[in-house]
């Protein structure tokens, strides 16, 4: 594994109030690769990726120990600008969450909040990002319709496109296909494979096949601990840990 490290987590412990949700997680996430987190529900995989853009800051009583370095810089450091961090680390959520605005407004949102006023620039970016997310052909005639009119799969691709507009370096996918049908799921997966050329991708999924299909590296978590982390192929063919093997063969979870 001699790739460039994008994010390095170092002995992460995380608490919701008194309950410990993550125990001593140490992991390297590589540039321009897809890293998948698998494990039974409640194992802490979503909690972990929400640390990477400090989304857990929103939860009252949450506390994190240890360091997360992105390009060598501690993202929890007092001098780190959390708003800037979130711009660099995009996120796609479990349920598609477009704003109740038009498709175009949804897309332009990330630029407008960053103070960009140049209309033609915004339009160009919006179109490019929609094309990257393979959504442009679906919506080019109704950019000014409400985003809520789109189908679930289209909404999720819109959310991906919306996150591409601000040109993040890392994109976090938190079970992006959990509420989608198989055809939409396939489209999203193809998209992820496409996007990894330009971005570092982290994906949480409870679907093992999905991890096998899209990821380069896979991390298996259980009860807040990182059990095993390796190249996806190795994890799925020759897991080192007995627990990983049992999980992958469907003995629990």
């Amino acid at each position: 594994m001699d790739h460039e490290v994008k994010i390095r987590a170092d002995k992460i412990n995380f608490y919701y109030g008194k309950t410990q949700a993550l125990k001593n997680i140490a992991i390297d996430i590589y540039s321009n690769k897809v890293t998948a987190f698998i494990g039974p529900s409640g194992c802490g995989k979503s909690t972990f990726i929400r640390l990477l853009n400090r989304m857990n800051d929103l939860i009252p009583g949450a506390r994190v120990e240890g360091r997360i370095l992105m390009d060598g810089k501690d993202i929890n450091h007092a001098k780190m600008d959390v708003v800037d961090l979130r711009r660099r680390v995009g996120m796609v959520f479990q349920k598609p969450n477009p704003f109740p605005k038009t498709i175009y407004e949804n897309m332009a949102y990330g630029l407008i909040i960053n103070g960009i006023k140049d209309k033609s620039f915004i339009e160009q970016r919006v179109i490019n990002s929609l094309k990257k997310a393979a959504l442009f052909d679906d919506v080019k005639d109704r950019l000014h319709d409400s985003a809520l009119m789109l189908s679930g799969g289209q909404q999720q691709r819109l959310c991906i496109a919306r996150c591409l507009v601000v040109e993040p370096e890392v994109i976090l996918f938190d079970e992006p296909c959990a509420s989608l049908d198989p055809i939409s799921t396939r489209k999203i997966e193809e998209l992820i494979l496409e996007l990894k050329h330009d971005y570092t991708i982290v994906i949480v999924t409870h679907n093992m096949q999905q991890a096998a299909r899209v990821s380069d590296h896979t991390a298996f978590m259980y009860l807040g601990e990182l059990i095993e982390y390796d190249e996806t192929e190795k994890i799925f063919t020759v897991p080192k840990e007995k627990m990983t093997e049992e999980y992958l063969s469907g003995k629990f979870g």
Binding site: M55, R86, G90, F93, Y109, I113, N114, C163
Partner: peptide, 17 residues
């Protein structure tokens, strides 16, 4: 919905924005 707020924050919007 909380998800709207999360989506906005995840795009790098500030709290006030």
């Amino acid at each position: 919905p909380q998800s709207y707020k999360e989506a906005s924050l995840a795009l790098g919007a500030t709290h006030w924005q």
